[in-house]
Amino acid sequence: RRVTVRKADAGGLGISIKGGRENKMPILISKIFKGLAADQTEALFVGDAILSVNGEDLSSATHDEAVQALKKTGKEVVLEVKYMK
């Protein structure tokens, strides 16, 4: 599913991630910080795999590559996510 997140002037997306190619895992949302941008969408969940950020494929990204992709986003971020059981 596709989720658009609008960041506030102060603060980032409000998520922590884990996983990555070096761990043989997808990039997973490991924490959502209450009240910040990702939480306010009410459409992102701990355990979601982030498949892409603004069209940039993260399916084979390392953890560091995913962190950089998320950091360089502007005010509006489009995440392609899939819930992983």
Rank of each mutant, 00 (worst) to 15 (best):
V46A: 07
K31H: 12
T4V: 15
D64R: 12
S59V: 07
K85S: 15
S60M: 13
T4P: 04
A69T: 11
A61D: 00
L28P: 01
H63D: 08
K71P: 03
A10R: 13
V81I: 06
K75T: 12
E42T: 07
G74N: 09
E42M: 11
P26R: 03
P26E: 02
G20A: 02
K18Q: 13
K18I: 14
K18L: 10
V67A: 10
E80I: 08
P26L: 03
G14R: 03
S30F: 00
D9Q: 12
G74K: 10
K7L: 14
A8N: 11
S59Y: 05
A43F: 03
L28M: 14
S30Y: 05
Q68Y: 07
V5F: 07
T4R: 07
F45E: 12
F45T: 10
K31A: 09
E65I: 00
K24D: 13
E22K: 00
E80P: 02
E42N: 15
S60I: 08
K85Y: 12
D48I: 04
G74T: 10
I32D: 04
G74E: 10
I27V: 08
R21I: 12
V81W: 00
T62S: 11
R6S: 12
G11E: 14
A69N: 03
A8I: 13
D9M: 13
I17H: 04
S59M: 08
K82G: 08
E80Y: 08
G19H: 00
N54A: 01
K7Y: 09
S16L: 13
I27L: 04
K7G: 11
P26M: 04
A66K: 02
K75Q: 13
E42P: 06
V53E: 03
K24L: 09
V78D: 11
A66Y: 03
D64W: 12
I50S: 01
A38S: 07
L13K: 01
K75D: 14
G74A: 10
F45M: 14
N23W: 14
E42C: 12
G20K: 00
S52G: 08
K82Q: 14
A43D: 10
S16G: 11
H63S: 10
T4H: 09
V81C: 06
K31Y: 08
G14K: 00
D9I: 11
V53D: 00
G14V: 01
V46E: 12
Y83M: 13
G14Y: 04
A38V: 08
K75H: 11
V81E: 06
G12C: 10
K24V: 01
I15S: 00
K34H: 10
G74V: 06
G11S: 13
N54P: 01
S60R: 14
I27G: 03
L36F: 11
D64A: 15
A61S: 08
G20H: 06
V77T: 10
N23M: 11
L51M: 11
G55Q: 04
S30H: 11
I29F: 00
G35R: 05
E65M: 08
A37R: 05
S16M: 13
R6H: 15
N23R: 13
G19L: 02
G20Y: 03
Q40H: 07
F33L: 09
L28Y: 15
H63K: 12
L51T: 09
H63F: 11
L51P: 01
I29Q: 04
T4F: 12
I29C: 01
K7F: 10
A8M: 15
K24P: 00
V3S: 01
L28R: 07
K24M: 08
K7D: 10
S60E: 13
D48Q: 04
G74L: 04
K34R: 10
M84H: 12
V78A: 15
L79T: 05
G20W: 01
S59P: 02
D64F: 11
N23Q: 14
K24Y: 05
K75E: 14
L51F: 07
V77G: 06
D9W: 09
V67K: 10
M25W: 01
S30C: 09
I15D: 02
K31S: 09
V53Y: 01
Q68D: 11
V3T: 01
A43I: 02
M25D: 06
L79D: 03
H63L: 11
V53N: 06
N23Y: 15
S60D: 15
K7N: 14
V53K: 03
G74H: 10
V67I: 13
L79F: 08
S59H: 08
T73V: 12
A66L: 02
G20E: 05
V78I: 07
L13V: 06
E42L: 05
A37M: 01
D39S: 09
L58C: 05
E80T: 10
K72W: 08
V3C: 00
R2K: 14
R21P: 01
N23L: 12
N54K: 03
L79Q: 06
Y83A: 15
D9A: 15
G14C: 03
G12A: 11
G55M: 04
L36T: 14
L58F: 08
A10W: 12
M25E: 12
K18G: 10
A69C: 14
L79N: 06
K34C: 07
K7V: 13
Q68R: 13
T73A: 15
T73R: 07
K34S: 10
G35V: 04
E42I: 00
G35Q: 04
A8F: 10
L58H: 02
G47M: 05
D48K: 01
G12F: 09
K18M: 14
E80G: 07
R2N: 08
F33S: 14
K7I: 14
L36S: 15
F45Q: 14
T62K: 07
G35I: 00
R6M: 14
T62Q: 03
L28H: 15
G47H: 02
S52N: 08
K85V: 08
A37D: 05
G35S: 06
E80D: 09
V3Q: 01
G74W: 04
A8V: 13
I27M: 04
I15F: 15
S60C: 12
R21K: 11
K7C: 12
K75I: 08
E22Y: 02
E80W: 05
K85I: 10
S60V: 09
I15P: 00
K31C: 07
V77Y: 05
Y83V: 08
K82T: 11
I50E: 06
L28W: 15
L36N: 09
G47T: 00
E56S: 09
L51S: 06
D64T: 10
K75G: 10
L28T: 14
Q40P: 05
G11F: 09
E80C: 08
E56Q: 15
V46G: 04
K71H: 11
N23K: 14
K75P: 14
T4K: 08
M25C: 09
M84I: 11
E56G: 06
S60N: 15
A61K: 08
V3H: 02
Q68S: 12
N23A: 12
L51N: 07
K18Y: 12
A61E: 00
D57G: 11
D64I: 12
I29T: 05
